[in-house]
């Protein structure tokens, strides 16, 4: 079996003496589409921050693409689309082309300029997410769903092996959420990009993901969507530590 893209070994993290994550052991298989779910304050965002190297674990270790995170240098192989992508400065006068080109800044490196090949790559990536008609529009003039596609392109332009999305569909209407998931499935199956999607929309998630991990300080569930769907409400209450109403989509 191929080695996983991400591996957490006994990772714990506390913030002001409160345990946010305790003894987390989990890995993301290469080529999977993993949905990371759990209640608010359950540690999902903390887990992403640990993964991205924005904070350090108190205990345990994290491997990225078979390297210890502290020695990991190939950050351009890990794409990140933040929740904040929804609340960026809408007045910022950058075209879609300019925003996507920013994805290449770190990869191209200091004191170097974008070449013609880079520019072609930027345009083909914009095409990949279906936004070519808007390449020279200001990003502030686009809808929320379109902007989210542009932010995905900004990560994709680096040919990442892993793409992390933190609540990307907040504020996007149902129909566009479906199209958004179609895009994600295409990236996963056609381009072989491993996806890690953080969400609390468990209904849509179980339809599309290949793996589900449920986190609430501890890792409470890690398996296939079918297994997750077979959990009873009682199991889920145990997971979340309180009774839950499943978010369902009856359309």
């Amino acid at each position: 079996m191929e080695s996983p893209v991400v591996r957490f070994k006994d990772v714990s993290y506390a913030y002001e003496q409160k345990n946010v994550l305790t003894k987390i052991n989990f890995s993301i298989p290469k080529g999977s589409f993993m949905g990371l779910i759990g209640p608010n304050g359950g540690g999902k965002t903390t887990l992403i921050k640990l993964l991205l190297g924005l904070i350090n674990p108190d205990e345990g270790s994290i491997d990225l693409l078979d390297q210890p995170r502290d020695k990991f240098k190939e950050w351009n192989k890990i794409g990140f689309v933040s929740q904040k992508a929804n609340s960026f400065n809408k007045g910022f006068p950058a075209t879609v082309f300019e925003v996507v080109s920013m994805g290449l800044t770190a990869k191209v490196g200091y004191l170097k300029f974008l070449t013609k090949a880079h520019k072609e790559k930027i345009l083909s990536t914009i095409d990949q997410v279906g936004m070519l008609d808007y390449a020279y529009q200001n990003i502030g003039n686009l809808s929320g769903g379109q902007q989210q596609r542009v932010f995905i392109a900004r990560s994709l332009v680096n040919n990442p092996e892993l793409l992390i999305l933190d609540e990307p569909t907040v504020g996007v209407d149902y129909e566009n959420v479906q199209r958004f998931y179609e895009l994600l499935n295409r990236l996963n199956t056609d381009y072989g990009i491993t996806l890690l999607l953080v969400t609390h929309d468990t209904g849509t998630m179980t339809e599309h993901a290949t793996d589900i991990a449920c986190i609430n300080t501890r890792l409470h569930f890690h398996g296939k969507p079918e297994e997750y769907n077979n959990l009873t409400d009682r199991d889920l209450s145990k997971l979340y530590g309180h009774p839950v109403n499943l978010v369902t989509h009856d359309h």
Partner: peptide, 22 residues
């Protein structure tokens, strides 16, 4: 001119710029 792309990237989205290694 030399640092144009870093300056723009940072001005647009500081978090993304930092994560990507700038």
């Amino acid at each position: 001119t030399l640092f144009y792309k870093e300056l723009v990237t940072l001005s647009f989205d500081e978090e993304h710029a930092t994560v990507s290694g700038i």
